[in-house]
């Protein structure tokens, strides 16, 4: 288990270094930040001073190592645009994105899994077929369209829910949460539905496909031959054996959700990291872009590692501390 863990961590570290290199290369290829930051009347002395302050006068390798060293300590430099510490900037926006993604993930599992089981067990029932059809729409509808339609229906026409912003937030240390106030919670509804719609259909279709696969296996047939009740066969035996791919996809999709949140955040003016990134792109604010890239990759890689470890929790065959016994024939 320890060896497995160390291996996974080494892999993760390697991936992060590679991503850092990419993030660093953005600096090299997106033009001279000094030109972008100062206006055309700036003197050569002012340019040089800024160049030295940003560390742009040193060699490439030195710059990368410094970048890496600083990044590990959470220092991503200062924003070109508003001269603020980038890490702090992202830190302020991260809770908004993570809360949105968390709610969307929970929604997708809580709604998607039962629907998947239902459509697999009753695959010829009209309701199941209708769900299958609707899910195709869910998969193919772009999230900005869904967002705009939801705003139109529930904020503009019916006026039930807020269509932009995060409502009132409560500060818990450095974390700002919208869960604790009524306006914060109601502000979460539409964006999280928008973000999770694709996930719900994805989870549903995944669970359905896996269930159909598992229901054909010998051990399910044997469970039926043992006279177990349908409920036991479906939920205890079949669903549990579908969970591996669901965990994988959900884990990986959390990364995607954070990335896709960019669109949803823009539609709902949600003050998260994605919204920050879009602003950074418009202003060629490279440190913010690089830091965003690193932070999102870090979350991605961490999730992947956690997913690998979770496998061992669900599947006893992957637990190396369970000694392989039963040597010799029967």
């Amino acid at each position: 288990m320890i060896v497995f863990l160390l291996k996974r961590l080494a892999n993760a570290a390697l991936v992060m270094v590679a991503v850092a290199l990419l993030a660093f290369l953005i600096f090299r290829f997106l033009g001279d930040p000094v030109e972008l930051m100062l206006n055309e009347q700036a003197s050569q002395a002012q340019r040089d001073a800024l160049r030295i302050r940003l560390g742009l006068d040193r060699g490439v390798v030195w710059q990368f190592l410094t970048f890496l060293g600083n990044a590990v300590q959470g220092d991503f430099g200062i924003s070109y645009r508003n001269q603020q510490d980038v890490f702090q900037l992202i830190g302020e926006r991260m809770p908004a994105t993570l809360e949105l993604v968390l709610v969307a993930t929970v929604l997708s599992l809580v709604i998607g899994m039962p629907l998947g089981v239902y459509t697999a067990i009753r695959r010829n029932a009209p309701v199941a077929q209708a769900l299958q059809f609707v899910s195709v729409v869910g998969v193919s509808l772009p999230s900005f369209a869904v967002g705009i339609l939801l705003i139109l229906a529930f904020s503009v026409t019916l006026g039930w829910l807020p269509g932009f912003g995060r409502g009132q937030v409560v500060q818990l240390g450095w974390w700002s949460t919208g869960f604790l106030t009524p306006s914060g919670r109601s502000a979460l509804v539409l964006p999280s539905i928008t973000l999770s719609l694709f996930q719900i259909t994805l989870v549903m279709r995944l669970v359905r496909a896996e269930m159909l696969e598992v229901l054909r296996t010998d051990f399910i047939r044997f469970a039926r031959a043992r006279g177990l009740r349908d409920r036991t066969v479906h939920f205890r035996h079949a669903l549990q054996n579908c969970l591996m791919p669901v965990i994988t996809i959900t884990g990986l999709q959390i990364g995607n959700l954070i990335a896709f949140a960019l669109v949803t955040e823009t539609v709902f003016q949600w003050p998260g990291m994605g919204f920050l990134f879009i602003q950074a792109v418009t202003h060629v604010d490279i440190p913010v872009m690089a830091a965003y890239l690193l932070v999102v990759s870090f979350i991605f890689v961490s999730l992947n590692t956690v997913v690998d470890l979770l496998y061992a929790v669900v599947d006893p065959r992957l637990r190396s501390d369970v000694v392989r016994g039963g040597a010799g024939g029967g």
């Binding site: 010998d218 051990f219 044997f222 469970a223 031959a225 043992r226 006279g227 549990q240 054996n241 006893p316």
Partner: peptide, 20 residues
Amino acid sequence: RGREIGAIFQDPLTSLNPLL
């Protein structure tokens, strides 16, 4: 099934639920 009629299948490697 299971109460009055028991069953044994061909492949013991796949007859048991691997997770229980």
